[in-house]
């Protein structure tokens, strides 16, 4: 399989120079590297610029409601655990509208990979603050600047027990592609928060701004992403230096393993035509 096999006929509707292009390329590269057949991959999204991504690949796509990609993805995985299920979502979609599903699907630890296009702004609705907008940033809707504490997704994911917590940068496609490959291969919930400059509405967190700050945490041989306390500290780092890479990683049983699905034929492959309930009717006699 090659990158071109993953090209869709759909016309791309993102702004020229958008960070989303880097994420799309990184995802395609990861799929090629893992050599997974497009028919066995399901991309699920909600609403927002990130949510359009599945249309721009040649994989199965369910583009649902704002904030609701995670429950759709989780249950699709339950129905057919042979599918590789990937969510492409944004900071508003996943951390705002869908915050409750973010919390509880980490707890569920379903084997899905969640790629959050985190541009720290609302793009599709034209520039309001998102849950991750830096405090003080002025928008039309927040003329005195954002006063809310940002949503600390990586720290939160670590605290909730996510087994794979990573941050990528859309301009560093190769590194991001590696993170996505690792995330897909991890058994259980994988979070990849991707710094993604919005060229139209975020005038602060630009390519230049991120470029000066990001560094690859896994290049440092002394960094152990298995150490939860150290990982939490690393996840909190935000300022002159911003770490990218696998921040936290631990092995734990996935939901499918916990409920015994993994050893079964996928639910979708079970025949239902001859379901016989006569045995259990005896309980009502």
């Amino acid at each position: 399989m090659e990158i071109k096999d993953l090209k869709s006929n759909d016309e791309i509707a993102w702004c020229p120079g958008c960070g989303n292009f880097g994420i799309l390329n990184a995802l395609k590269r990861a799929i090629v590297k893992l050599n997974r057949a497009p028919k066995d991959i399901l991309l699920v999204s909600g609403i927002g610029q990130a949510a359009k991504l599945p249309h721009y690949t040649r994989c199965n796509c369910f583009n649902g409601l704002h904030g609701r990609a995670l429950p759709v993805a989780a249950a699709a995985k339950i129905a057919n655990h042979h599918l590789t299920v990937i969510v492409t979502t944004g900071d508003g979609d996943c951390y705002g509208e869908g915050g409750n599903h973010f919390i509880h699907n980490i707890r569920r630890n379903i084997d899905i990979t969640v790629i959050v296009h985190d541009n720290q702004i609302y793009g599709l609705t034209k520039g309001q603050a998102s849950p991750t907008t830096d405090p003080g940033y002025i928008t039309k809707f927040q003329p005195s600047g954002v006063v809310l504490e940002p949503f600390h997704a990586l720290e939160m994911a670590i605290v909730l027990g996510a087994g794979f917590v990573a941050r990528g940068y859309s301009a560093n496609t190769e590194h991001l592609s590696w993170l996505i490959t690792e995330g897909i291969q991890h058994r259980g919930f994988s979070l990849i928060d991707v710094l993604q400059p919005c060229v139209s509405f975020n005038k602060k967190n630009t390519h230049e701004w991120y470029g000066k700050r990001v560094y690859k945490v896994n290049d440092d041989g002394s960094y152990h992403p298995e150490d939860k306390a150290v990982a939490f500290q690393k996840a909190s780092e935000w300022g002159d230096r911003i770490p990218i890479g696998i921040i936290y990683k631990t092995d734990k049983k996935s939901y499918e393993e916990n409920i015994g699905l993994s050893n079964h034929l996928p639910l979708v492959d079970e025949s239902i035509e001859n379901t016989d309930i006569s045995g259990i009717l005896k309980d009502f006699i």
Binding site: P71, V72, A73, A75, A76, I78, A79, N100, L267, V268
Partner: peptide
């Protein structure tokens, strides 16, 4: 599989996801 959802919004979106993947 019977799954207790985090809220009713999740419940209906979950059954939509499972159904899309092919199960009743």
């Amino acid at each position: 599989v019977v799954e207790q959802a985090e809220d009713e919004i999740a419940a209906i979106n979950m059954i939509i996801g499972a159904s899309f993947a092919g199960v009743r």
